[in-house]
């Protein structure tokens, strides 16, 4: 293996994904501690817009793999194309952003190469150990890949914020042979139903999670929202259980919001939820579990039963209004 970090950049609607820029930030830092060379690779049918954008994210070389078989995305074609690039470059580490598309094909790629898959990473230590969340985000696990095995890392969205890039990579085109690939039939790619609840515009949001209890008890979320003049959101479990409409879901498969005030009631703080709200200016978390991950993100936290605290909160708000 070569002392090389191969960053797999993803493309959506002809443009470089933001999460792929984050992967380049990670690679630049990792290349310093490992003295490794960074090579990026983009796949698609037409990369004319992507190539300069990716080269501007640094690294030594930027490989452009253009083939009509790579659009639309299929895991069959991606795994084959990247396998050929990996055979050619022989990198010690392959890096990608932990996007849904990456979840779809990256583990297959790692398995095909007998590699060590380290998914959803939040940090890398100087000694090469990775940090990732376990037990529903409650604990950090220091995770060490086996010696001499190619490492396949996917990075948690938002864990490596984009900064200024220095240097420009040399763009090279790279051809692959996809004649042996039988891709699946892609019938349609469509935006998920967007409801009438547009939380992105709300200045204040009160959100409820599984800890609220049940459908009837969820009324308390609406009550606090009313007292605050806020919109109502939710994490995934209340939407799954149909306590509230799916359109209110905030997180990686729902809406991404960044209000001035975000109040999380009975939300444990699964990463899928956090990526949808951590940009909020002020975050209040009320949860009975002092170790809930949501407190890591909060500006103010109250450990306690939300059904005791929230009525007092509504009373205090109404009092202040008078």
């Amino acid at each position: 293996m070569n002392n090389k970090i191969l960053v797999v950049a993803e493309v959506r609607d002809g443009a470089l994904k933001g999460i792929s820029k984050e992967a380049m930030v990670f690679a630049a830092a990792a290349s310093n501690s490992l003295s490794a060379e960074v090579v990026s690779v983009a796949l698609g049918a037409d990369l004319s817009q992507v190539a300069p954008a990716l080269a501007a994210c640094g690294g030594r070389r930027s490989l452009q793999v253009e083939d009509p078989g790579l659009d639309p995305y299929t895991p069959e074609a991606y795994v084959e194309a990247l396998s050929q690039v990996i055979s050619k470059e022989d990198p010690a580490m392959v890096v990608i952003g932990h996007s849904y598309q990456a979840m779809d094909f990256f583990p297959r790629l790692a398995a095909a190469h007998g590699g060590a898959l380290v998914p959803d990473v939040t940090a890398m230590d100087a000694d090469g150990a990775f940090t990732r969340k376990v037990i529903n985000g409650k604990l950090d696990a220091r995770t060490v890949p086996a010696e001499g095995v190619r490492i396949f890392v996917s990075l948690q969205q938002g864990a490596f914020p984009v900064t200024e890039f220095s240097g420009e990579a040399q763009v090279e085109s790279c051809s692959v042979d996809l004649s042996g690939v039988t891709p699946r039939k892609v019938i349609e790619i469509a935006p998920a139903e967007v409801g009438e609840v547009d939380l992105a515009a709300a200045e204040k949001i009160v959100s409820g999670g599984r800890g609220v209890g049940d459908k009837d008890k969820f009324q308390i979320v609406f009550d606090l929202a009313e007292a605050m003049g806020a919109a109502v959101g939710a994490s995934r479990p209340p939407c799954d259980a149909e306590w509230v409409e799916h359109q209110r879901q905030i997180g990686s498969s729902g809406q991404v919001v960044a209000p001035k005030l975000y109040v999380a009631l009975g939300i444990s703080g699964a990463i899928q939820h956090l990526v949808g709200m951590r940009g909020s200016q002020c975050i209040v978390a009320i949860n009975k579990d002092p170790n809930a991950a949501i407190f890591q993100e909060a500006t103010y936290g109250i450990v306690g039963d939300l059904h005791e605290v929230v009525p007092e909160l509504i009373a205090a708000l109404n009092e202040a209004k008078e």
């Binding site: 950090d140 060490v144 890949p145």
Partner: peptide
């Protein structure tokens, strides 16, 4: 291919 060496509350 991987080993968890340590877990802890963040």
């Amino acid at each position: 291919k991987l080993r968890i060496e340590k877990v802890g509350f963040p």
